[in-house]
Design a protein around this nucleic acid. Structure first.
Lengths: 295, 295
DNA sequence: AATGTTCGGTAAGCCAGGCTTACCGAACAT
DNA sequence: ATGTTCGGTAAGCCTGGCTTACCGAACATT
């Protein structure tokens, strides 16, 4: 309404003709007349002098036109730009991942996305082991492929569907009683110190990587704290504790003195993309979409 | 509508709360929700992330807010300024007049207006005899008190009501036959050369100051052209022609050898204010209003 | 002068859409 | 469990956006 009043001022000031103005605005002449009148009433003075033969801008009308025009155009342009950037898939995308399987998946997705959208450049980097979300929250990463769920209902993060799963294993020292068993159970964690992470992990992550209780509620002895895979393996080989991790470790981290025992009753780890809800750009969306297709 | 959508973006971005936003905009929460949705649909992407507990700006929303806000405010300000200047009676007003009676009337009006509106300064100046409207059209004068009517339907000029009238007289040389008559008639103009003006006067003026025909249609002999009162009187005293003018001349321009004869059948001259329709400012309006009261 | 054409304003009426109320489910607090 | 807060959705009222039809003013044309 008010918007249209300003627009009718600008166009009529240009055309100086109600009929052509109405045509350009796709309105009836009567409507144009009404809109001008309403703006004039709002301002409190005539903006045009009109006879049946001629339309002329008032001094006030001309002044107002000069003042309003640039800002009116600017608002139009800003909205158009926003709409364009809401559609554009382009720019550089920083993608994090957790673990070698996720890393490989991200790489393949990045290649596929780059082929489809030449304007996109993807940077890939592993997320820190002990602090998986701060880089994402700080905007260093645009999205990352990590273990789900993120957890926390009031989270500023959102996640896509599960893209792949991975069995969970327990890494123990060679001479540990569990080392000779074909499979282990989460309940066994109550009988062995389990390596912990020395960082304030989100609850959902802690349950997966360093739980404080077994499913039945028995307390899990807390072993030394570690912050990456190398560290963990050193501790495990030295029989200082067991490392709760994912199946890929068996193939990517073979280690003398370390045995990987499958956890029979543990739900597999689910991996999916996570992003900031406030930065869910079309490029992130396209990456997530491509990932679903690739995987 | 579109205006309101932008406004709801700005206010909601500030409040981050639909209820308070609705309150500030004097709308229902449902309406605010609808407006946000419509803007988001127009842009093509969410501008806010909302849970039932928290409202957060999207990156796009924040960018759009930053771009729109100054222009939105500027439009508001421009309209407010226009409305204020449509009400303000202030500044300097250049007023023209024609003849000593009009000059005195303008002076008295200026005094009264200055007393009522201290912000107004009035400059008074006589309009050129032969070219009464160009100074007004060029904006040198804001209004002027001159003979009515202005004439010309497609005129860019408008005029107020008649403020005073003045009888018309014919100035003739002492020995002219008409000089001894108590009154003269417009028909007598056919029998004497009448002084003309060497300028392209508007038709309405020419009829009053230098007619080409009498009311009955007889041609009026054209005398020498003059451009001011002094000149005219010299010609009249030298018996080169008669000068068609207004009654004030008899008292303001007594002249040896010149006799003023009343024109019995001539409509009196009407004086009123004239202004440009496109520059009918509140100050001009106030001057016209004051003039009606004073006179 | 009489007639036709163009143009802006006005009146009356239709109906889309602006806006509301009522209700729902989610997310906490107690 | 229960209550409260908050945003979204549905349904409906009725304002006001917009149209068509008509009018008078200002020229042009004959």
């Amino acid at each position: 309404m008010e918007r249209e009043e300003v627009e009718v001022l600008l166009i009529l000031a240009e055309e100086l003709h109600f009929g052509r103005t109405a045509e350009r605005m796709r309105l009836s002449r009567a409507r144009v007349s009404q809109l001008v009148q309403r703006l004039e009433r709002r301002v409190g003075a005539p903006l045009f002098v009109r006879t049946s033969r001629r339309v002329v801008l008032t001094a006030l009308g001309a002044a107002l036109r000069d003042e309003l025009e640039p800002h009116h155009r600017a608002i139009d342009a800003a909205l158009a730009r926003a709409a364009a950037s809401a559609r554009a898939v382009e720019g550089t995308l920083n993608v994090g991942f957790s673990g070698p399987l996720a890393g490989e998946a991200v790489m393949r997705t990045a290649d596929a996305l780059g082929a489809r959208h030449p304007g996109v450049e993807v940077h890939v980097c592993e997320v820190p082991f002990a602090d998986p979300y701060s880089a994402l929250r700080e905007g260093i990463y645009d999205t990352q492929l990590v273990e789900l769920p993120v957890g926390g209902t009031e989270s500023d993060l959102a996640s896509g569907p599960v893209l792949f799963t991975e069995a969970r294993v327990l890494a123990v020292g060679r001479s540990h009683p569990l080392a000779s068993r074909p499979v282990a159970s989460l309940e066994d964690l109550a009988d062995v110190p389990v390596l912990t992470v020395d960082a304030p992990l989100p609850a959902a992550c802690r349950v997966l990587l360093a739980p404080e209780r077994t499913p039945s509620g028995r307390p899990v002895p807390q072993g030394p704290a570690v912050s990456n895979a190398q560290e963990a393996l050193v501790f495990v080989a030295a029989e200082k504790g067991a490392w709760l991790t994912a199946a890929h470790a068996a193939t990517y981290h073979p280690w003398p003195g370390v045995t990987y025992v499958p956890l029979a009753d543990a739900e597999p780890l689910a991996y999916g993309l996570v992003w900031r809800q406030t930065h869910h750009t079309p490029t992130v969306r396209a990456f997530a979409h491509t990932a679903r297709e690739v995987l």
